[in-house]
Amino acid sequence: MKYGYYPGCSLERNARAYHDSTMAISKPLNLEFVEVDDWNCCGATEYIALNKIPAFALISRNLALAADQNIGENLVAPCSACYLNLKKADHYLAETPDLKQKVDTALEAGGLQYQPGSINVQHLLETLVLDVGFEAIEEQVQKPLYNLKVAPYYGCLVPRPAAMDSFDDPEHPISLDKLIEKLGATVVDFPLKAQCCGGHMTQISEDTALELIRHLLKNAADNEADMIATICPMCQLNLDAYQDAVNARFGTDYHIPIVYFTQLMGLAFGIPAKKLGFGKEIVSSRAALEKISDEAPQPVKNSKKVQKTSSLPMPIMIEEG
């Protein structure tokens, strides 16, 4: 399957591990990612805070380029902010004639044009879960990640795209949980899995950001996660690079490596760790990865959920997924 690919600024350098691992797993999964030529920054969460029309024009240049370059109608963005911006621009251009007219005029000044709806923006997780499917992913697993306890972390911008249908539940997404299970790893309970990492607050109001990061690290640690798997460069950066600052501020001692879910997929597919960008994380994942065993763990029920005889029955949950 051929897809347009929009890496975004983070994947060029800071989140290079995300890019490298995405490329590494694409081959066994028969995915062809064609990068949009000469793409520009999506504006992250900054441009829209300054000026509306330029913010949408900036994003739309990418959509126009993607539509023009004959790389297929599906455009995959691994970065959550890029994904949301691209998808949101396409959505609002289609539904707001005044915005579209102004953006059209701006694009025209650069000799470009874009018809909303001609590009289908997907997050990488969406592509893997919906288009590739759990079965095909499971088929590629050669070295199951037995015994590795992973907290799946979704963040905000993928499960909750405003005003647009998300492919997963905005409050309790489960697609990444299921994917990681297919890799043989143990998914730990991680109730804060869709909570905020602080976003750009690390730059603006460190107090706000460190408190939010602390909640997440504490929740993962309390549930005995060996590592947190993310789908977003911003989440990775905040939880990884600011873990020391959290420890210093709150007197804690967290050492939880933060890796991209694609790195774990690559590892399970038998791809060497080096090719997957392992080692670039600031909190080293080495110790955690050493826990991976060749034998499948005995299925143990979460102690929280074991019912004592005197206890009252829990409400029956509707079959998930």
């Binding site: 309790h172 929280k304 829990m314 409400p315 509707i318």
Partner: peptide, 17 residues
């Protein structure tokens, strides 16, 4: 109430209908 996941019914034992 299971339709409102953030209220935890069916997930958090001490949330009752």
């Amino acid at each position: 109430a299971r339709r409102i996941p953030q209220y935890g019914y069916g997930r958090l034992p001490n949330v009752f209908s």
